[in-house]
Design a protein around this nucleic acid. Structure first.
Lengths: 242, 242
DNA sequence: CCTTTTCGTTGACTTAAATCAATGTCTGTT
DNA sequence: AACAGACATTGATTTAAGTCAACGAAAAGG
């Protein structure tokens, strides 16, 4: 189908994320090689499993749109939420070393991902040294974020935890959002509570309090919020206000 | 009080860590180049500052012996402990992306580190492609550990947090320790409390309880412990036992 | 459209950890 | 060796968050 003069169709050229994804780290003339690295546009319905804890890990996943949670299932049926991932995030970077999925990942809404095999990445890293730079950069970011979260979750009061969580979600959604104060929560209250180390009832009460203080506005859906008084929210997050 | 003393020698060949440090990823015949990458054997006295939050970050640091804490100072004088690092650990991987120290690091005891500049690492990465592999491997590990800690710290009871902490410390010290049950805590109770998100009094009580239950044995020094009933300690850590 | 189920909120009560306060014990200094 | 100051432990009390239970609201499914 594709001869020497036929332009190779490259999904990445049209991707909104291209400027901060793998193509950005590969020279223009060799950009066509991207298609040989990346399997693009895989769709996952809400609740669909991306991978399961304990399975062999062979790929990293870049979220094109949508969101995922990673979690560890406990024997007693409860879930420990490990992280939330949204547009532009890379899932599964922590498994590259051991080659085994340390947690399970499932879609929080209908989502699309592109995947890259560890193996291809290793091989092509020699051809494209800048890919290695990208990897290190991305890992460094991920580590910094992870430490940020650790800080948020240990130590702080329930109010401070939720306020920090909302600010982090908002900051990350702002990259593609038009209204800078809108927050969309694709995960359930239970997931958030779990993630922040709180009981669901406590979380619900804090949501109510943040709403009553005029800090955030809840819209008809549970998942839609707006930040109304960002300054106050930040004071809650830092623990100055209670 | 802060700042390195004079470097002593420049030879990775004799280093006990060589097999899991940079030299391991560089071909034998070019191993001499290591000296041009690594500044070796910098000594830091107890409480000495390795770097300060907000400063420009230019190096990663490998701990040859000793230990460090990384922390963020709050305006009200309190410290938020970010992490503890010991022999073989690499400090400052999270700053590579932004190039600014996100926290401060200080020695918990008299310690020795080797440092590698980001810049040299980037340049030499092309000469030694395996260095990039090493970076990715190490980052992946760090991320996995960080998620482990997140899990330990949020959610769990005070007892479970400390038990998990002790098991993690023990596992990491075992790599160079002769007695597999000995634990040496180079950090203060306040640092541990801070790190685990507990009040120092709560931590102290839990230490006492673990001791009284025969789980751990406290020796004369606050810093010296032994695991006496590992199984019980693991049950505490998992939350089966209280 | 109405029923069923899941999810989120609110209230009453309990509990684990924080705080306040006092005491005990190391560590480093002269 | 004796002292000072920092560090660690223990006790009494308070408080924030957890648990148990009921209710309301939104999805899902026929």
């Amino acid at each position: 189908m594709s001869g020497p003069n036929t332009p190779i169709r490259n999904d990445c050229d049209e991707c909104a994320l291209a400027s901060r994804c793998f193509p950005a780290f590969i020279s223009v003339e060799k950009r066509f090689r991207v298609t040989q690295i990346i399997t693009t546009n895989l769709t996952y319905d809400k609740t669909a499993l991306l991978y399961r804890q304990g399975e062999k890990a062979k790929h990293i996943y870049i979220i094109k749109f949508g969101s995922f949670k990673t979690y560890i299932s406990n024997p007693n049926g409860t879930e420990y939420i490990n992280g939330f991932y949204m547009t532009g995030d890379i899932i599964n970077m922590e498994s590259v070393d051991q080659g085994i999925h340390l947690n399970s990942a499932s879609a929080l809404e209908n989502s699309m991902v592109c995947k890259v095999s560890f193996l291809r990445l290793t091989i092509l890293k020699d051809e494209f040294p800048t890919l290695a730079n990208m990897a290190i950069k991305v890992y460094s970011q991920a580590l910094a974020l992870s430490q940020d979260l650790l800080k948020c979750i240990s130590k702080q009061s329930a109010t401070s935890r939720l306020a920090t969580f909302l600010l982090i979600i908002n900051r990350r959604q702002n990259i593609q959002n038009q209204d800078p104060d809108k927050i969309y929560l694709s995960m359930s209250r239970q997931d958030i509570a779990n993630y922040l180390g709180l009981a669901i009832e406590t979380l619900s009460r804090v949501f109510t309090r943040l709403n009553e203080s005029g800090c955030i506005i809840k819209h008809n859906r549970h998942s839609d919020l707006s930040i109304h008084d960002r300054d106050l929210l930040q004071r809650y997050a830092s623990g100055v206000e209670n």
